[in-house]
Simulated assay, not measured.
Amino acid sequence: IPGLLGVIQYNINRKIKDLKIFEIGNIFYKSKPQKARIDESTRVAGAITGARLEESWSYKPEQVDFYDLKGVVEHLFIHNSIQNWHFRPAQKSIMTGKALDIYLGDRLVGFLGEINDVILEAFDIDQPVFVFEINLMEMQQRVKWDKVYQPIPRFPAIERDLAVVVKKNIQAEEITNHIQENGGPYLQRVKLFDVYTGQQIAPDEKSLAFNLVFYSMERTLKDEEVDVQIEHILQALGDKFAARLRD
């Protein structure tokens, strides 16, 4: 991370403010404070800052944000067919409040987030910077090198939108995973498309809205079949998270 911040500083000083960079290298650390031996690990790290896209006559530049970086990490896992990855809230001294730990299964393999102002000031950087770092060896062990392709479905899909109210401390990813686990064999995709807090919802609650896509590779599904799965999903969410359907 310090090396990437140095590269960003160098470029900003030369009026190059829109950057997306990465580096692969070894780090040295003590895995346990009481150990005298120094461990070595290969990491991949990346950083983004500045405008999301290049300015043009039809596009006014928007600045990258935390979710752009999170999307980069997600795409890295998806592109390499890595499964069972998830994020958990993190407390990192180099980050602002926007920080996540990265897990593969139950193993902590990295982190991502926004660099805090104290460190940015030390590097003489006056714009937000978002970084990630991942243990490359842990990631490579889970890469699926053989790609599996599926034919395009011949039968129409059924889409349903589902909005549930949960406590604010419950992560959207937990809800997404539980929907997938309880959606049955025909649930093909779950996508979060809205998060709402405000009027008509208690101060300690939030509403999460998901788009669910169901289809079969063998036949046309009936609405009644999907209705049964939606009821099963709602029951499962209620049992585990005390979630309720938003009115």
Score class of each variant (00 low, 15 high):
119 I>Y: 04
93 S>D: 13
11 N>K: 13
201 I>S: 00
111 F>V: 09
246 R>L: 12
232 H>E: 10
217 M>N: 07
149 Y>E: 12
1 I>P: 14
138 E>W: 00
73 V>E: 10
36 A>I: 15
237 L>W: 06
189 R>D: 15
157 A>R: 08
137 M>R: 03
1 I>L: 13
128 P>C: 07
185 P>D: 06
52 R>H: 08
170 I>N: 01
76 L>W: 00
239 D>A: 15
89 P>Y: 05
36 A>T: 14
220 T>D: 03
156 P>F: 09
206 K>D: 07
87 F>A: 04
74 E>P: 05
86 H>Q: 07
208 L>H: 01
233 I>T: 01
198 G>Y: 04
86 H>V: 09
100 L>P: 01
142 R>G: 06
180 Q>A: 13
34 Q>Y: 13
36 A>D: 15
40 E>V: 14
76 L>E: 07
115 I>S: 03
247 D>W: 07
46 G>E: 06
217 M>D: 09
75 H>C: 00
163 A>E: 09
92 K>N: 05
115 I>A: 10
156 P>K: 05
198 G>A: 06
21 I>T: 12
109 V>M: 07
117 D>M: 04
23 E>M: 10
144 K>P: 04
56 S>P: 02
56 S>W: 01
169 N>Q: 14
161 D>N: 12
143 V>K: 12
47 A>F: 08
177 N>F: 10
242 A>Q: 15
122 A>L: 10
246 R>I: 09
236 A>H: 01
90 A>M: 00
130 F>R: 03
111 F>S: 13
